[in-house]
């Protein structure tokens, strides 16, 4: 177990390093000179050179990359002498746009993304698994066919279309909900809930539809298993047969996929957050890409990779508890 974990963590570090390297490389080679971006209107060549020195982007690529990595782990100083700025670990640099610490920006916005992700996950698991289960049990009936067609339709509606349609109907026409605003739960729980409700629904719809189809397929496969015939031949009640013998084998693979989907969402729901103006990691990513804010782009890329990789390891660990055939040596 300890050896397994050590191996997985080593792999995790390697993947994150590779992600860093490639992201850095892309922006080093492709992005316009950030010094010019920062310099602004009253710009002199001397000032540009100065900014480059402070940022360290006058150095060769490998040196820069090394500075970035060591900053991430141990913190770093920008500039030298009296004007130097110390960036404590984990240092992700400062936004070219707002000069804010990128780490602080991430820490600020992560709770918003997490709220969006958790709420949506609860919704889609409830709706998707319930619909899938009922469809599987009623396989071939009108209920099954309508749910599956609905799920296909739901999965094919783009997020932003659904978001705009919902806003138009619920906020503009029916005035049931206020326009989403950034409030915290402690400020105003009702408004908080109302603000997040639409993002949750929008984000959950696509996933719920996929999960309904996935659950249905898994349950139908499980019901055809030989051990289900054994369970029936033992004279067990239909409820026990279903709950104990069918559900666990059918839902275990769903757990795997859920772990990865959820982890990916923690890295920010770009479209949903942007459409609803929620200040989460996803919106931060969209903004930073639009403005070529390199340190922020690096941060959101790394964050997303981090969640996906860690999520994967967690799912694997969880799996050993869920499926007795999987054991870690």
């Amino acid at each position: 177990m300890a050896r397994y974990l050590a191996g997985r963590i080593a792999g995790l570090v390697l993947i994150l390093f590779t992600v860093c390297l490639f992201t850095y490389l892309i922006f080093f080679k492709l992005s316009p000179d950030p010094a010019l971006l920062i310099c602004g209107k009253t710009c002199t060549p001397e000032r540009v050179t100065e900014i480059r020195t402070v940022l360290g982007i006058d150095k060769p690529f490998l040196t820069q990359f090394w500075d970035f990595l060591s900053g991430l782990i141990a913190g770093r100083d920008y500039g030298s002498g009296a004007n130097s700025v110390h960036c404590p670990a984990p240092c992700l640099g400062y936004s070219f746009q707002t000069s804010q610490s990128v780490w602080e920006m991430v820490v600020d916005r992560l709770p918003v993304s997490a709220t969006v992700a958790i709420g949506a996950a609860v919704l889609w698991l409830l709706a998707g698994i319930t619909a899938g289960l009922l469809s599987a049990v009623k396989e071939g009936t009108w209920w099954d066919r309508s749910v599956m067609n609905l799920a296909l339709g739901g999965a094919s509606i783009p997020n932003y279309v659904l978001a705009l349609a919902l806003q138009y109907v619920l906020v503009v026409k029916l005035r049931i909900l206020p326009f989403p605003s950034s409030v915290t739960f402690t400020d105003d729980p009702v408004l908080w809930f109302q603000s997040y409700l639409m993002p949750w629904i929008v984000l959950a719809t696509g996933y719920a539809c996929l999960y309904a189809r996935l659950t249905r397929a898994n349950v139908i496969d499980t019901l055809a298993e030989n051990f289900m015939r054994t369970a029936r031949s033992k004279g067990l009640s239909p409820v026990l047969t279903m709950r104990r013998h069918a559900l666990r084998p059918a839902l275990t693979p769903v757990t795997t996929i859920f772990g990865m989907d959820f982890a990916a969402l923690l890295g920010g729901a770009l479209i949903t957050e942007t459409v609803f103006g929620l200040d989460g990691v996803g919106k931060m990513a969209a903004d930073s890409i639009a403005k070529n804010d390199q340190p922020v782009i690096m941060a959101v890329t790394l964050l997303a990779a981090f969640f996906v990789v860690v999520g994967n390891v967690l799912v694997d660990l969880l799996y050993t508890g869920l499926d007795p055939r999987v054991r870690i040596r």
């Binding site: 298993e225 030989n226 051990f227 015939r229 054994t230 369970a231 031949s233 033992k234 104990r244 013998h245 666990r248 084998p249 275990t252 499926d323 007795p324 055939r325």
Partner: peptide, 15 residues
């Protein structure tokens, strides 16, 4: 009672 041809698939692997 009944017993079946393939005992591995006739037993639930999760329990």
């Amino acid at each position: 009672s009944m017993i079946f041809q393939d005992p591995l698939s006739s037993l639930n692997p999760y329990y």
